[in-house]
Nucleic acid binder design. Sequence first.
DNA 1: CTGAAAGCGCTTACAG
DNA 2: CTGAAAGCGCTTACAG
Lengths: 347, 347
Amino acid sequence: MKKSITIKEIAEKAQVSIATVSMVLNKKDKKISQATREKILIIAEKYNYTPNTMARSLITKQTRTIGLIIPDIVNPFFPEIARGVEDKASELGYSVIYCNTDDKIKREDKYINVLTEKMVDGIIFAHSSDRQMGFDSLDRCKVPILLIDRDYENKNVIGRVVVDNKKGAYMATSYLLDRGYKKIAYIAGSITTTTAIGRLEGYNQALTERKLVIDNRYIKVGEYKMQWGMQAAEQLLCEKEPADAIFCGNDLIAIGAIKKLKEYGLRVPEDIGIVGFDDIYLASLVEPPLTTIKQPNYEMGFKAAELLIKNLEKGRVNSVKNENNKILAKENNILLPTELIIRMSTK
Amino acid sequence: MKKSITIKEIAEKAQVSIATVSMVLNKKDKKISQATREKILIIAEKYNYTPNTMARSLITKQTRTIGLIIPDIVNPFFPEIARGVEDKASELGYSVIYCNTDDKIKREDKYINVLTEKMVDGIIFAHSSDRQMGFDSLDRCKVPILLIDRDYENKNVIGRVVVDNKKGAYMATSYLLDRGYKKIAYIAGSITTTTAIGRLEGYNQALTERKLVIDNRYIKVGEYKMQWGMQAAEQLLCEKEPADAIFCGNDLIAIGAIKKLKEYGLRVPEDIGIVGFDDIYLASLVEPPLTTIKQPNYEMGFKAAELLIKNLEKGRVNSVKNENNKILAKENNILLPTELIIRMSTK
DNA sequence: CTGAAAGCGCTTACAG
DNA sequence: CTGAAAGCGCTTACAG
């Protein structure tokens, strides 16, 4: 491929210094005469000049690139986040390097290193729930990190954008109770993540508020998979007093549960109520359509990019002051609301 | 954030020159004594040295970053591609900057510029079908481009990885004929893209091979949306001799068609056969489960990254020779096979 | 085996 | 209003 013209070459052609060219091309040209300016601009246009951002970044210490580390873009939970991030970033003149970790800490660490070497200005990170406090590669990270979806404590974390899982689970459980179901089970995908803990709390709160007893036999913990939804639903059906409604940790679990209930000849929602969490593409096409707690994934990505970049640019203004503000400003912790989407069968 | 130590500082601490440090850190240290090597390595380790790839790239003209330009990561067609690209790229030591265009040529052009400025080594590009030959921003692009999914002619295109749409459509249509359906309709999403043309050809071929007449009333052209599937299915049902099977341009169209058929009280596949193209997440959960032509999207991304990077590195070896090989080597045009996935109702 | 020097393409005080 | 110069952090011939 043909290489680009440089400011040095433009300077020669225009018979001016490279400093002047640089200033004109960067619009820091208040002090440059109109004649000079035009001469330079015309040459740059003619030779299709593209600046070399490598060279620029070397001086400015700013790449206008951010990293996005997620478990897996194929997991339908993440494309919307990724899209939100990219939309806001590109609006603000930033590019995004994206990385898939499959929730493996080794890969996370590798990507944090790579992104550091590429000198990204910041990282948006949906980390593995297995991440352990203590001796952590995040400590050695030289780049500000903003967490999404899952929370974590680390000195390099400058902010977090998470979903109000507790409220969502509360809404889901309350919805089922409002519709007259009495014994609400909860099929969880996990119980260790901050996300999962929030959902359990919301479930508990809804029951407690109505003075209902929390029955551990109705709480099943497994993985966020369809298979587990089927398995857990079967377990629930075998209890002496089977539950009459199920709040599912995510849509995949819910879909599995529905499948199993059908096998047992149970109708949803006539015989048993179901609400899922998350919002998978086509969830509305499953039969019966799945009522879910929708997570604002696009907004999560969008807000995260906005917050990160805002902080980066603020940081540049008074970087000295920022050096040891380990206490996170409250406005850097964003809790996004969820929404209950009720879907009815069209039959 | 704390800044990284530089090779200059390491050189001072180790009492050697920066050249020596550079060689050791880059493993080009055959000629360096073991003692010196170790001294340097220990210091680098101790101070948690991370190389500044900006500085390096400025000299080597290589960023080990590629661009991925796609219409929309939220469209379920693209996550698998993106994942394939990232997997292969990271395996080969490359990062990927990803961009969403919404099929807008302006955004495509913008991203091509941005990626050029960021000095990516190459671009994997799923372009808008509206792209016009002639005065084209791609011509001015300074970076090698590899096309995926959709073909296009341009001097900067060094390769293409596309799906065998013709064969896929042929398989879909033949499958329906084999099952005894007589009048196969085709609801297309488009008729202008190379992709769409391939599918139409395959459909025609299957009919022609069995000496069946191609009836234009059975071919409906619209968009790749569920809404259009519903609409077109309705149109087909209103024909004097309604079709008894439909090959759908993609899964969304197929799902829309199924929906409409249900409204008319028609059963799939007893009353009418349906085959879709593409493979959307959860397509197996729609009722009845959708038989589709699966596109090897992950492989497409994976192969694309492999092919692009292989060419980049080859190009570096003999860049002079490569300058004007406008004729694309045959091995740079990859046609990936599709697969027929038959899904039956479990009832 | 190692170092001095040039240079990648740019920005940024500083001087005039 | 404009230019000369230093320097960002690195690599790469070249010399010894």
